[in-house]
Design a protein around this nucleic acid. Structure first.
Length: 339
DNA sequence: AGCACAATAT
DNA sequence: GATATTGTGC
C-alpha cells in the first residue's frame, strides 16, 4: 500500500551533505557522542520539521482531542540522544531503542481488529524492594515521542536507570477482541489442550502472560459451568464479555490440535521484524500502545495493541456497546514486559 | 513445572 | 466488578 519512494537523488544529496557535522571524525568512530556512520543518509537538520513546529497540525489534533505535546528544545533532544547513545554503548539494548523497534512490527491490516488494553497504573511502584530490579534502565526519553509524562519535566535521571516501572506490567483488560481471540484459541484447542500456557502461546499476544490467561480461563470456565448448569437462564448480565462471544465449541476436533489457525501460522505474514521478535517468532504479535481509557474515577492510561497504522484506521466500529472509549491516536510506544 | 481451583487482594 | 495474586493440592 503506502509505498513512499523517496528519490535516490535525495538520498545522495543528503548523505553527501551530512558530513558537515562535527569536523573531521574518523569514520567509524564515535565523536562527541555521535556515531557518524549512523548519520549517513538521514536528513539534515534543515530537512526536518523544526522543533517549534508540532508534528500534528493543531487542527487535526483538536479533531482527535489530542493535546499537543509540549515544545521540545534542542537541549531536550540533545539530552535524549545522549541518553540513547550511552545506553547503546553500554551494551544495554536501551529499552527505548528496542522498544521502539519492537513496537514497530506491522500487524496485517486484515487482522487488525485485535485489541488489547492495559489499564495504566502508577508507574511509580513505591520502591519495590527485593530482587527484581532490572539490570538496566528501561525508558530512555528519546526516540519515542514520550507523551508518557510530559507534565513532569523531571531531571530525568532519577529515574531511568533502575526504575522498576518498566517491569510492573499494567493490568490487562480483556476487550471483546482479545476475548474473541481467546475463545477462538480455546475452541480450536479443545478442552483437553486448552491450558493456560498453550492458549497463551497460540493467542500470540505480545505481553500477555500465562497468568493473564490462567485467570481469564478460570473465569471463563466458571461461566461455562454456570451456562451448562442452567442453559435456560439468560446469562448473567455480568457476563457481557462472554455472552458476546459464543462459548467455545470444544468438541470440534478434540484430537488434532494442530490446526492452529491463522494466528499461529507464522509464515503466513512475512513481516519485517527488527532484531528481536517474540520468542519463537510467531506470526502476528499484537503490540501495545498507550491509549486513554476512561473508567470510573479517572482517565487511566491504557496500552492497547495495534499496528502502527492504527491511528489512521477507524476506531473500532464493531465495538460492543457500553464502552466509552476515548482513545487517542498514538504513536508506537513501549511494549510492556519481556517474557 | 504446570495446572485447577478457591480465596483474597488491588 | 474485573483482574491479579497467592496458596493448596494434584
Amino acid at each position: 500500500m503506502g509505498e513512499e519512494a523517496g528519490s535516490d537523488d535525495e538520498f545522495d544529496r543528503l548523505s553527501a551533505a551530512d558530513d558537515v557535522s562535527s569536523g573531521g571524525g574518523d569514520d567509524d568512530d564515535v565523536d562527541d557522542g555521535r556515531v557518524l556512520e549512523w548519520e549517513l543518509g538521514i536528513p539534515s537538520g534543515e530537512d526536518l520539521t523544526p522543533l517549534s513546529q508540532p508534528l500534528v497540525p493543531p487542527q487535526l489534533a483538536s479533531a482527535f482531542s489530542v493535546k499537543p505535546e509540549p515544545a521540545r528544545t534542542a537541549l531536550d533532544v540533545h539530552r535524549a540522544s545522549q541518553t540513547t547513545i550511552l545506553g547503546l554503548r553500554r551494551g544495554a539494548p536501551s529499552s527505548a531503542a528496542s522498544a521502539a523497534l519492537r513496537s514497530f512490527s506491522p500487524f496485517p491490516p486484515a487482522a487488525a481488529d485485535e485489541t488489547v488494553e492495559f489499564e495504566g497504573d502508577d508507574p511509580v511502584p513505591t520502591g519495590e524492594s527485593s530482587g527484581k530490579i532490572p539490570l538496566f534502565g528501561p525508558i530512555s526519553p528519546c526516540a519515542e515521542s514520550e507523551e508518557a509524562e510530559p507534565s513532569t519535566p523531571q531531571p530525568d535521571d532519577s529515574s531511568d536507570d533502575h526504575s522498576a516501572r518498566a517491569l510492573k506490567r499494567p493490568r490487562l483488560v480483556w476487550t471483546p477482541q482479545l476475548h474473541k481471540r481467546f475463545i477462538d484459541v480455546v475452541a480450536h484447542l479443545g478442552i483437553k489442550n486448552a491450558v493456560p500456557k498453550t492458549i497463551m502461546q497460540l493467542m500470540n499476544v505480545e505481553g500477555l502472560t500465562r497468568e493473564n490467561v490462567a485467570s481469564h480461563l478460570q473465569k471463563y470456565r466458571l461461566y461455562l459451568k454456570r451456562m451448562q448448569g442452567i442453559p435456560e437462564e439468560g446469562p448473567s448480565p455480568s457476563d457481557h464479555l462472554f455472552t458476546s462471544t459464543p462459548p467455545a465449541t470444544q468438541s470440534l476436533h478434540e484430537q488434532h490440535v494442530h490446526t492452529p489457525m491463522q494466528y499461529a501460522i507464522p509464515a503466513m505474514y512475512s513481516m519485517p521484524v527488527f532484531g528481536m521478535a517474540p520468542p519463537h517468532g510467531h506470526g502476528s504479535p499484537i503490540t501495545m500502545v498507550p491509549a486513554v481509557h476512561n473508567q470510573g474515577k479517572g482517565a487511566h492510561r491504557a496500552l492497547e495493541p495495534q499496528h502502527p497504522y492504527a491511528a489512521f484506521s477507524e476506531r473500532r466500529k464493531d465495538w460492543h456497546s457500553g464502552n466509552s472509549f476515548g482513545s487517542i491516536a498514538s504513536y508506537p510506544h513501549v511494549t510492556p514486559k519481556n517474557k
